[in-house]
Design a protein around this nucleic acid. Structure first.
Lengths: 210, 210
DNA sequence: CACTCTATATATAAGTT
DNA sequence: TAACTTATATATAGAGT
């Protein structure tokens, strides 16, 4: 029994407060549900107890997410502002980084060189030359490996006349492709690793790959 | 008087529905307020009528925004709007593009070459060589311009002995800086535009800039 | 409409199990 | 604890103004 007028004032007894919270929460949710059905409305209730426990009510046929979206559309309050602005800033920074990276790539493709001063042109030239050499070196090494593979294959074939009958996988076939074309033009090893100008191995490359 | 048991069922009469909505909304908000005070809780109620009119309750000493922020922190439900999700997607794509661009730049700096096959190495080599030549050409042209400027300056000075007294702007001073250092080592024009190897103008560049 | 009224339904505080 | 009980407070439907 509700003995005596109920005071609307914080319940100091921790246990009573907890019990009342639970009971009244249920009452509130029940009322919200009735309202939803009787009046064809949509209700979202989000509540936190004094111990920060979350409880929520949401009308059927909708979602808290939907209600909050609608809320921030209709009300002047921008619920998402803090998060939104943070994301906008992140996006802005990413786009800028992106632009810078693209400019760098363009310059390394010989475009947009007008924007560079003489110092920048010099360091870019130096960089291009270094990378060019590195890439050529790597390419030659890669080619040499293919050639060594080929020679090894041929030696095996020479030793074992039945070798050619072995059924090889697809990946292996492509290596043989190089080998055959290579042999139309060349007959021995190519130790030339010159980095500063078109070398003998470059010419081989041309034959091999074109 | 509540005559007869109240049916929890949509009120079909528009006016009655509207009146009940208003009354029960007030009741709900009153209950929410009592709960807030009695139990030291925080409550947010957001509701939309069938005609999409917004009404909200929020406990004193807090805000709807705060409750929603807390809600999305505590709950597993992603309450973020479609807008947010779109931004997340944008961010994801930007980060990926960014990664790709960085990889491309690294390869153009001679790093991560292991990841490239022989074809890719060849086209990168070709690209590097082309850009290298373009950059060198541009650098030489830029240098020539500086030299022409210098020669023009010297001719003017020779014609007018008072020229040196003219007060020049800062940008112009830097050009003069080059001119003076250049003149410590060289005394006439450099038509050499060779692209395929270190040229005379490269050596001049060194003197000019170092 | 926006109130007031009022019979009745419902909610609930505190006690009990 | 939580579930049940019950006296009382409160909410509210529908009518009246």
């Amino acid at each position: 029994m509700a003995r005596g007028k109920i005071q609307i004032k914080r319940i100091e007894n921790q246990t009573n407060r907890q019990v009342t919270y639970s009971k009244r929460r249920n009452g509130l949710f029940k009322k919200a549900h009735e309202l939803t059905v009787l009046c064809d409305a949509r209700v979202s209730i989000i509540m936190f107890s004094s111990s920060n426990k979350l409880h929520e009510f949401i009308s059927p046929n909708t979602s808290t997410k939907e209600i909050i979206d609608l809320y921030q559309t209709v009300s002047d309050v921008d619920v998402w502002s803090a998060h939104y602005e943070r994301m906008q800033e992140t996006k802005r920074k990413l786009l800028e980084t992106n632009r810078n990276l693209r400019t760098q790539i363009k310059q390394r493709l010989g475009e947009c060189l007008d924007e560079l001063d003489i110092q920048e042109l010099r360091s870019l030239e130096e960089e291009m030359e270094n990378t060019f050499k590195l890439v050529r070196e790597r390419k030659n090494k890669s080619q040499q490996d293919i050639q060594k593979n080929l020679i090894h294959e041929l030696e095996l074939r020479a030793e074992d006349p039945h070798y050619g009958l072995v059924d090889n996988g697809g990946d292996y076939d492509s290596v043989l492709g190089y080998q055959l074309r290579f042999h139309q033009n060349h007959h021995h090893n190519y130790p030339n690793h010159a980095l500063h100008s078109a070398s003998a191995s470059d010419i081989i490359t041309f034959h091999l790959l074109e």
